[in-house]
Nucleic acid binder design. Structure first.
Length: 412
RNA sequence: CGGGGUGUCGUAUAGUGGCAGUACGCUUGCUUUGGGAGCAUGUAGCCCAGGUUCGAUUCCUGGCACCCCGACCA
């Protein structure tokens, strides 16, 4: 993509009121735009990151048998009344049709849709297990949206729902989902600072598990056991004051942000909707369920919180909007154009700073801000040696490589 | 929802009871290109509603919005 044609511009100054790094950097770089508190447009550059995150999640969800579907945002009141959450769930957006006076909810989660839906398709033990997921926008009437895209009122979530004939099958799948989540966060680059965290399970299971990523912008407090790489959420530290794996009492207190959550629902939602199946003997049983969520906006914001410096973002290669940022300095557009063509033909995703009226300093500063993993500079100096200068974002060293060898150097 | 803070061109800011200024951006022209270029040129703004006043962007009251802390977060 040519930078001269891009829809957004970068800014030198950050919005005055923002404090969180993800809000400052994503806004300055033109990845997102805040429409109101907790509500963001994802701009073209940001959407490229978003799509990469989606792809990682899809791949892992499909690998554990997930079938993707897409449920609506607009929900009927009756479904929420059946689960007792029309009145109960504080941050559910509810509204009344101006014309028909009918009440609706904006989906904050999708048990109220997916369970009645499953009733149409699950009747026998032969129909189980089933796993469906979606990547879809959620609405939550948060009392206080905060920290850039970490806590919004509208955001995208991957939510997977599993249906099982018994608890044993649920337990087995739950462990698979846990492994799958670990892979997702590793692939997204934050595996090193993300901990499986024991958290409150509500009324229907002893614990749920969260995936908590260490960072100062986080709003949760966790106690972690570095040896086992697990943690305990502060909310249950009274019941569980030692490492659940090794029993160690030597836990480290840290701030973290919850990037994912897995939950054994058991029969909490199959009961109100009477989602049952017939076993071999023709007897009815309630379906056992699990749900598994990842907030995509929050994940993107967390990656920025974890990987940035005073100049800008430092994207892990797996989620970077582009692999390579090509900068043409000192009127070298002819040679840079040619290089950009070659890179494109080789299938290397490149952002090409072909802008003619921007100074070298501005281009370099923008490259740091946007944070693409590889920076390739073509200037008069480098062309004298038929070379380009390459540098990894986040590292100091630059090196000159022959233009002919460029693509191999970048893969190395 | 409680507490605190802030609202001035697109962005960041200065300032004032009486013509609202600067920088960045953007326009146009010329010159520039290794760490946010120079000169010239044009462009655009006081959150909203009441009140006080000859006169309010400024003072007062109310509202709205945004940020931060707390509470809340299936």
């Amino acid at each position: 993509m040519k930078q001269s044609t891009i829809f957004t511009k970068t800014t030198k100054t950050a919005p005055r009121e923002e404090e969180s790094q993800n809000a400052i950097l994503l806004t300055r770089s033109g990845f997102v735009h805040k429409e109101m508190a907790g509500v963001y447009t994802i701009l073209p550059l940001g959407l490229r990151v978003f799509k990469k995150i989606e792809a990682i999640i899809r791949q892992e969800m499909n690998a554990i048998g997930g079938q993707e579907l897409l449920m609506p945002s607009l929900h009927p009141k009756e479904n929420w009344e059946k689960t007792g959450r029309w009145e109960g769930l504080d941050n559910l957006f509810r509204f009344t049709s101006f014309y028909t006076k009918q009440d609706y909810a904006l989906g904050a989660t999708h048990e109220e849709i997916v369970v009645p839906l499953a009733k149409n398709h699950i009747a026998s033990y032969r129909d189980l297990p089933q796993y469906v997921y979606q990547i879809q926008n959620k609405f939550r009437d948060e009392k206080r949206a905060k920290s850039g895209i970490l806590r919004g009122r509208e955001f995208f979530m991957k939510d997977l729902y599993s249906f099982h004939k018994d608890e044993q099958d649920l337990d087995a799948y739950y462990e698979k989902a846990k492994d799958s989540y670990k892979k997702i966060f590793e692939k997204a680059g934050i595996g090193g600072s993300t901990y499986l965290t024991f958290a409150s399970g509500g009324t229907f299971a002893k614990y749920s598990h969260e995936f908590q990523t260490l960072c100062e912008a986080g709003e949760d407090i966790i106690y972690l056991c570095e040896k086992c790489r697990v943690a305990v959420n502060e909310e249950i530290i009274k019941d569980q004051s030692s490492c659940p794996e090794c029993g160690s009492k030597d836990l480290e207190k840290k701030k973290a942000v919850e990037v994912g959550n897995i939950f054994k629902l058991k029969t909490k939602y199959s009961e109100p909707f009477n989602l049952t199946y017939k076993d071999e003997a023709g007897e009815n049983h309630l379906v056992q369920m699990g749900c598994y969520g990842i907030g995509l906006n929050r994940l993107m914001g967390t990656i920025v919180e974890v990987f940035h410096d005073d100049k800008g973002m430092i994207w892990p290669e797996s989620v970077a909007p582009f692999k390579l940022h090509l900068l043409s300095l000192e009127g070298t557009s002819e040679e840079a154009d040619k290089l950009y063509e070659e890179l494109s033909q080789k299938g290397i995703e490149a952002l090409y700073d072909d802008r003619e009226n921007q100074s070298a300093g501005e281009k370099l500063a923008d490259a740091d801000l946007i944070g693409i993993p590889w920076r390739v500079v073509v200037s008069k100096k480098t062309l004298e040696q038929q070379s380009a200068e390459i540098k990894r974002r986040g590292e100091k060293e630059t090196k000159l490589v022959k233009i002919a060898d460029l693509s191999t150097s970048i893969h190395a």
